[in-house]
Amino acid sequence: MEKGPANPEVKEKVLAYLDTVEKAKSKEIAAKISVPKADVDLAVKELAMEDKVEYLYITTTFVALKGKVKPPQ
């Protein structure tokens, strides 16, 4: 299902928000930056392809800036 390219402004806002936290769920990002969640999901998809963010599964899946959360010691 084609959803088209993500909105560059939303991508910037997502990155800016993730900079302020360790990790977040996309629903929480959407609420904080006042953008529909579907747009955030799309932005995160592209940012992941660009190696700027990554997904983390720790009992549920979070999103974080790439490399921000370290593997276990």
Binding site: K45, M49, Y55, Y57, I58, T61, V69, P71, P72
Partner: peptide
Amino acid sequence: WKHGGIVGVRGYGGGVIGRY
């Protein structure tokens, strides 16, 4: 085993389960 949710491949948010 320890859990680790950090590993993956580009563009994917899952499909890989980290284990150490």
